[in-house]
Design a protein around this nucleic acid. Structure first.
Length: 628
RNA sequence: GCCAUCAUAGCUUAGUGGUAAAGCACUUCAUUGGUAAUGAAGAGACCGUGAGUCCGAUUCUCACUGAUGGCUCCA
């Protein structure tokens, strides 16, 4: 083990130790709380408790008042205000924790010790079933000692410390090894037992922990910085999008400035596709349920479908575009000479996501996919996939996200019966995808068993400013839909041949993509994406006419321009342009008008020079065309 | 959906059991200013919606709506 791994391991030990300390403090402050699980995590630790555990007072050695408290309807869980108290208690307790001791016990002994804790019992059974050793870790002062008998008669707390069912991995002497200000309790949240919403919701207390106080502060600073570029905050400040409680949760509205960015992305996407043989199509937003029964989406999306009741018929808001595109294909009599057939449509679909899952632009109920489907022969998969990979690389290189990505090549698992399609088709498709990934030098990882039941796929993962990983672009082979809709074309022999469908999306969803690039650029968009590309500032009121004329000329060249005609001081107008992070500022005053030029400045480069109108146009048009 | 926190003017926030304050933005007037906020005045809020407690609620309680964070990185 190298030193880096070693120190990472020590940090994880420290975090795990703190999880125990948290549980011990909570048991002191809330004797009725039932500890469940508490691991070390990326930035610290957490511990889940059941604060409303129905108990048998006698069994747990508690008095009747405590038991009564536990039967009241109101939750006994601590509130956010109580976290400081818990943290304080932890810091006090830490000084007495000089070590850990452990004891290996039998399943029977463990069952007896944790008889009143159904969560621990579940774990004990699992451990025993796996044939692993059951161990109890006890922490406290140096000269402590404990026996199985003492554990049986106590509720986690022993006179000198705290014990828990645990597999180990702690610091040897917490009181010496943990800097008191290098951890803190950060927040409280609900969490289902084992993450399954069918289970009871527990109360999770999160803590942050790092090697030193400085590292903890650095982490908190990073989080603060990340918040500053949060797309929800910037979207509001820069007037990119808004929401309305009258319209509903998860249904964002794009302001003109947000739409300008989206349009630039959309146009670029189409530009990349139209030269590769794609055709634009358009499909309505609702369809009969039958369509989705045939496609299988009705079963898959279930209660996520929005239903629309007409006078006599009922419809469904489309959750996917694929079935619609299948119908467009089916309307034709294609020959093998026509293949591949490629459709492209940035189309909005609707899914009734759980309200708690909705967030800003990244998780919404109206999703515009830059969707495309192509129909081809198995022999054409590789070339088509390669073309799409090329588009993806070009697109993400342009927006500057290509530097931190990886691609998951999702392949069929061992149980072949779980997948649709013949071995031959799967092998061809998987091989084609992998070759396309290789040829294009993608940083890809094959993952067995990750494929959809209908075919293998390539998923592109990119990281945003907050370090969160987003699955954006995707290329999926589909052997299912052509089957379900009985699609075919005529081959060389005059026979019906089933095409393979390839689903592809480059940005994933335009809403989510907008959110991600807002954070990626922290609002300072490159010129081609900027909602306002040029701000014209007349120095005095009598320069407004010149400014407006120039604005008209720029606008006629499709340059997004704003003219500051407010009656404010010059300095304030300059500041406003900077605050809005507008790429180019053009200043027009007496000096400029006399010389027949303008003063041009750039957000990043500062003053550029004094070009003539023609020169200005050339500079801007060149930059926008090159997507800078 | 569930847990926690929150909701006051367009935005950011202060405040109170007796119907509210400030900054920015906005409007008007003065100012004609060459690189990050000219000055003054004005207008703007039934304090998210609905109910309850109270003589009286924006403030306390409940419900609803919406926002934010969290909901297996496993003993």
């Amino acid at each position: 083990m190298n030193s880096e791994d070693k120190s990472a391991e020590m940090l994880s030990y420290k975090r795990h130790t703190l999880a125990h300390l948290l549980a011990a403090s909570v048991k002191e402050l809330y004797p009725l709380a039932m500890p469940t699980l508490g691991p070390a995590i990326d930035n610290g630790f957490y511990y889940d408790f059941d604060f409303d555990y129905k108990i048998d007072a006698d069994k747990r050695g508690l008095n009747a008042d405590d038991a009564d408290l536990n039967t009241s309807k109101k939750s006994n869980a601590p509130k956010e205000d109580d976290l400081a108290k818990i943290e304080k208690s932890m810091k006090k307790l830490l000084a007495t924790w000089e070590g850990f001791k452990h004891l290996e016990i039998s399943k029977e002994e463990a069952t007896e010790i944790f008889a009143d804790n159904e969560y621990k019992l579940e774990l004990i059974n699992e451990i025993a079933d796996k044939g692993e050793k059951i161990t109890i870790y006890y922490s406290g002062p140096k000269d402590f000692d404990f026996s199985i008998e003492s554990l049986k008669s106590n509720d986690y707390k022993l006179p000198t410390g705290f014990f828990d069912l645990c597999r180990g991995g702690h610091l040897e002497n917490p009181s010496k090894e943990i800097e008191i200000d290098s951890f803190k309790i950060s927040r409280i949240a609900g969490a289902y037992w084992r993450g399954d919403e069918k289970n009871k919701m527990l109360t999770r207390i999160y803590g942050l922990a790092f090697n030193t106080k400085e590292e903890l502060e650095k982490y908190e600073w990073t989080v603060e910085e990340a918040k500053k570029r949060d797309h929800k905050k910037l979207g509001k400040e820069l007037k990119l999008f808004t929401t309305s409680s009258l319209i509903g949760a998860g249904l964002p509205l794009l302001q003109p400035k947000g739409m300008a960015i989206r349009k630039a992305v959309e146009d670029y996407l189409w530009e990349l596709h139209k030269q590769k043989g794609y055709d634009r199509v358009w499909t309505p937003h609702i369809a009969k349920e039958e369509l989705y029964v045939t496609s299988g989406h009705a079963a898959k999306f279930g209660d996520e479908l929005f239903r629309v009741q007409g006078k006599d018929e009922s419809f469904i808001m489309k959750p996917m575009n694929c079935p619609h595109h299948m119908q467009i294909f089916a309307d034709n009599q294609f020959s093998y000479r026509d293949m591949p057939v490629r459709y492209f449509e940035p189309a909005t679909v609707y899914r009734d996501e759980k309200t708690g899952q909705l967030a800003g632009l990244t998780r919404v109920r109206s999703i515009t996919q830059d969707d495309g489907h192509l129909f081809c022969r198995t022999t054409q998969i590789e070339e088509e996939v390669s073309t799409i990979v090329g588009i993806i690389k070009e697109f993400y290189t342009t927006v500057g996200l290509m530097s931190d990505y990886w691609v998951r090549l999702s392949l069929r698992g061992d149980d072949k019966s779980a997948y649709l399609g013949t071995d031959e088709v799967w092998e061809k498709a998987e091989g084609a995808l992998e070759r396309a990934a290789k040829e294009n030098n993608l940083n890809y990882k094959p993952v067995r068993g990750e494929a959809a039941f209908y075919g293998p796929k390539l998923d592109f993962m990119f990281k945003d400013a907050l370090g969160r990983e987003w699955q954006l672009a995707t290329i999926q082979c589909d052997f299912n839909l052509p089957e379900r809709f009985d699609l075919f074309f005529t081959n060389e022999k005059g026979e019906k041949e089933r095409p393979v469908v390839i689903h592809r999306a480059i940005s994933g969803s335009l809403e989510r993509f907008l959110g991600i690039i807002i954070e990626h650029f922290a609002g300072a968009f490159p010129t081609w994406l900027a909602p306002v590309q040029v701000k014209i500032i007349p120095v005095r009121e009598n320069h407004i006419e010149h400014a407006k004329k120039l604005a008209t000329v720029l606008r006629s060249k499709d340059i997004r321009v704003e003219c500051d005609i407010s009656d404010e001081g010059f300095g304030k107008k300059v500041r406003a342009a900077k605050v809005d992070m507008i790429p180019y500022t053009v200043i027009i005053g007496d000096k400029d008008i006399e010389a027949g030029v303008v003063t041009l400045e750039n957000r990043d480069k500062g003053k550029i020079g004094t070009p003539t109108q023609e020169e200005l146009l050339a500079i801007l048009i060149e930059e926008i065309r090159n997507k800078k």
